[in-house]
Design a protein around this nucleic acid. Structure first.
Lengths: 412, 412
DNA sequence: AGGCTTTTTTTCGAGCCTCGAAAAAATAGT
DNA sequence: ACTATTTTTTCGAGGCTCGAAAAAAAGCCT
């Protein structure tokens, strides 16, 4: 099964450890790193001087760490922004956005573009994606060293190897191997990530106190998506990319879902479902796209007075509550982040949600289940893509580091 | 977060690797171990000669490995049965069973006992458990070296640290810290395991081809339990011990469950639920215990002719199908083992189950989802407990081995 | 200002561990 | 008996981490 540990793995892993400690802590001193990793000071010293020499880390200016303490002042270690760069590409409904990000995580260039994803033919959609990346990479104003990785995020289902978009609500097209396309086009390793998974990754970095071992990010938008972190790791299925939380069955044989099945959580809690319930349309009517503005107006009306609008949000809350309760029955309660335009209407959703969750096995401690909301998903998705790409560089490119170079050196 | 790798960890982990390879393969040669672990022959040679010297492994007789091949014959390495022993205790409805198992996994002593778990007072139940273990350990006929660990398995909810039984259908008693009790009584480290988790562990050893990375063991008995293996590891919640699959909500506000809630999967698929549906009792009637014999008779009647009995199994299949479909929506389809008395009636359950699962997001490839049945859960639970205890000895006691002894030696 | 204390970082030798290559061992074929 | 083949052990080299001690870089105190 699992493979033994070779001697050379040791250094690689401990280098990865140090890099991860620096990325997490910002500007930790060698002593701090030794404490968090449990390695000896000598080892940390050796590794960090290697990494500095290789241009991966830099020593912070001592002034920054002025600490008024007695003794030799700690000198903080930081990621060298120039060590590498990554590119993020986020494709969402009628919107394409690209950013170039340095090794320290700062955005150094970006471009955004509106386009009609729903009607665009295949070649054009692919062409737009590669063109926007090319423009950023070839921009003469941008002095970027080597771009080490591209991470693309998309709403929809991606394959489990993070190579292709299999299906997406933003386009009728299917099975587009974006990762391969980008790799071929730019000669840079690329991945195709699911949007909700990236939201979860971003949350883990934004608020590690709240989001660490087990937590859930739920996208409340046209559809319902989920990113699930278990034991500190993103849980992605073996076949597809993410848990299909939105398509858990809430009511067997119930309302018509966009996926063609009946009774899915999404068929009660997706924007289109809330809309058709609020407008008194049949639960079997065809899902329609609703703009974010319309949804905000709907929420406002629901807040104003009791009526079908408020009832629609109540139904959404109920479906989400039973879905979450079923999920919690399996994995135990965990913090939840509600993301997306309907997260801004979470005040309308929450009461029914809590009532429903309390009726499930997972809701035993329903009081202690806590929700956080974030109406805007795009920044999260981009952040997640960036961190995904950067940690890949940390672990897979810079951690092996010297070994690879030494090997290459011997040949010369 | 994660901790760096110390130099001494290396040997420990590679020793663990070798032990695990031997336990898995039975009688692998050093060459085979080198191949499966990816370590060099020299390393395997060094580690295995250490382990042999320490009495943990033994070399098989060359005759056993006569292979008609040219060249120096491989000599198989086996676990030394006398290296240690473990004890398993399985407490189920009205039944208590204990086994002593040698390091190679062979049962070397056992005892079983009927008792009335439902009415027994706390002290008596605990007393029975400790007494039966004591009898086996103090039996003069049994020549067992050191008992290194006790694993107790029970139907019901255990805490996530595997220390205590929190709740069980077999007794009205709650919160019994069996692990601590056994440890205090015998001075041997003990754990308290959930029955379904142990079934899953056992399946992983029984049929590793089928049950490896992701799979599900479902207990179809009075209640419905689940053991879930994800990424090759038992998935247990952070609060309680196992996924409460049986208490996922199948129909909001539906049939009365033993847990007091409504619409749980168990309220349709548990023995009591099948029984009350078959007998035309209300879905809200109090759950009653049904004997295995009665259940077998019920299944026979359902097979004989169409009627309420058959319909009851159909409803059970439907509930299980939607439950599994929801589970598969989250984790992707995986092999399923149906265990317990109603697994013998799986032919009655399967059609409706497959029909239901096909209506869910997780059932997209419902044809490829495969079920295996095992009517008798007790042997599985015991095997699981045994393997759990033995692998603990492998990893935590014998893998560190020399280091610990060397350390102890220095003191003397 | 200069010596002392405190804290961080580096240096250095010791001790392990794994590895590859070569040797040794053990057997079947000729 | 000799050779070919395969497994296992031996041995020296190279790396890695560790602890202890030294060095570095401050603040504190007289």
């Amino acid at each position: 099964m699992s493979v033994g540990i070779r001697h050379d793995d040791l250094r690689r892993r401990n280098r990865a450890m140090v890099l991860s400690a620096v990325r997490r802590a910002g500007q930790p001193s060698r002593t701090e790193i030794a404490a968090t990793t449990g390695l000896s000071h000598s080892t940390i010293s050796a590794i960090s001087s290697d990494l500095i020499e290789e241009g991966i880390l830099t020593e912070g200016k001592p002034s920054e760490t002025a600490s008024m303490k007695r003794g030799r002042p700690q000198v903080g270690l930081a990621l060298n922004p120039e060590a590498a760069a990554v590119v993020t590409v986020v494709l969402s409904l009628n919107f394409l956005s690209v950013a170039v990000i340095d090794y320290a995580g700062q955005v150094i260039a970006e471009e955004q573009r509106r386009l009609d994803t729903l009607t665009m033919p295949r070649d054009e959609l692919i062409g737009e994606c590669t063109a926007i990346v090319r423009r950023r990479l070839e921009d003469p104003d941008l002095d970027v060293g080597s771009v080490a990785r591209i991470a693309m995020g998309i709403q929809g289902i991606t394959d489990s190897h993070a190579r292709a978009m299999l299906w997406s609500p933003i386009t009728p097209l299917t099975d587009i191997p974006f990762a391969d396309i980008l790799e071929r086009e730019f000669g840079i390793p690329a991945t195709m990530e699911n949007d909700c998974n990236m939201m979860a990754v971003a949350l883990q970095w934004r608020d590690p106190d709240r989001y660490h071992d087990n937590f859930i990010a739920i996208l409340l938008s046209h559809g319902i998506g989920m990113g699930l972190v278990l034991k500190g790791e993103l849980f992605t299925g073996t076949h597809s990319s993410g848990g299909e939380f939105g398509h858990m069955i809430h009511r067997p044989g119930g309302a018509l879902c966009r996926c063609g099945r009946r009774g899915c959580v999404e068929a009660y809690a997706g924007n289109y479902a809330i809309w058709r319930n609020a407008k008194g349309m049949s639960e079997n009517s065809e899902p329609v796209d609703v703009s974010d503005a319309d949804m905000r107006a709907l929420a406002a009306k629901a807040r104003e007075k009791d009526g079908p609008e408020r009832e629609a949000y109540r139904k959404a809350g109920e479906a989400l509550g039973f879905g979450l309760g079923n999920l919690f029955a399996l994995i135990d309660p965990a913090p939840v982040a509600m993301v997306g335009v309907s997260a801004a209407a979470f005040d309308l959703i929450e009461p029914a949600l809590r009532e429903a969750i309390a009726q499930t096995a997972g809701g035993q401690h329903s009081k202690s289940i806590s929700f956080d909301t974030e109406p805007n998903e795009l920044p999260l998705i981009r952040e997640g893509c960036a961190m995904r790409a950067l940690t890949f560089v940390d672990q897979e490119i810079f951690a092996p580091g010297v070994q690879a170079r030494a090997g290459a050196g011997k040949v010369a």
